[in-house]
Nucleic acid binder design. Structure first.
Lengths: 126, 126
DNA sequence: ATGTTGCATCGATAAACATCAATACAACCC
DNA sequence: GGGTTGTATTGATGTTTATCGATGCAACAT
């Protein structure tokens, strides 16, 4: 029994076929534009913390009401950052009664990880 | 309710991540600020392509004179992006005669990769 | 219905950013 | 020296972004 891997949802494959990897070959313009949006979404401390707070709930969702008070920012600002993360495909949400719950979309994170992971293989000295 | 993805990965984690990882625990503010700078540096299509062009030269360096003509941008703009990548610790450079050569700093890429890689391990319970 | 609470959207503003032309600098060549 | 080439810096400009207060909307409670 070695590694078993089960991925649901659109993303086809991991580090190898689908995406070249940052180090394996120069990125073409389209892929660069696409991936840069993801990096940019994570390129803000508030969003990175939000993403981490959401993704570290392994089982599932976080209520916005648990996220907002963790920051010294207004509620609309947090809402705005959550929207950006959602537009980037990193998280999704659903309203349940009065509250809105967010959860991570691991496929997108995996895509980034795979893209960067190839970096390690090329430079043998890590 | 919406479908949650289920990712099972039997990898034996030898990445030796020094840092928590995005999914393992909520990021504290300092680490978030620090890592966000890296993501932001890669969050521009031009810089991402530059980074890829530089890093994909596994053995070594790229002359700026090879980078600039690959873009439809002015030379100062490319120079500016290279500076940002350098300030982020992703690349370094050296002048050799008339030309300036850039190379990737894999340790920084590895840090990002390790940070994201942990994302894949945590989704186990659904 | 009326009020209350949780969250999103709108409009405004100040800061950050990408970009360029012009210029400066550094190293070479003659 | 003077001229040329490669790269960085400067200054300006238009665009994007982070942030807020005010407001809107949805779901509950009474």
């Amino acid at each position: 029994m070695s590694k078993q891997e089960l991925v649901v949802l659109g993303q086809s494959d991991e580090s190898g076929a689908c995406c070249p990897g940052l180090v394996t070959a120069p990125l073409d313009e389209d892929r660069a534009t696409d991936l840069a949006k993801l990096f940019k979404a994570l390129g803000d401390p508030v969003r990175l913390r939000l993403m981490s707070m959401i993704a570290s709930r392994s089982g599932g969702e976080v209520c916005v009401c648990d996220l907002t008070p963790a920051f010294d920012l207004s509620q609309p600002t947090i809402s705005h950052h959550l929207k950006l993360l959602r537009q980037a495909g990193l998280i999704d949400c659903e309203r349940r009664g009065t509250w809105v719950y967010y959860w991570a979309l691991p496929a997108t994170l995996d895509r980034l990880a795979a893209f960067l992971k190839a970096s390690q293989t090329a430079e043998a000295t890590a």
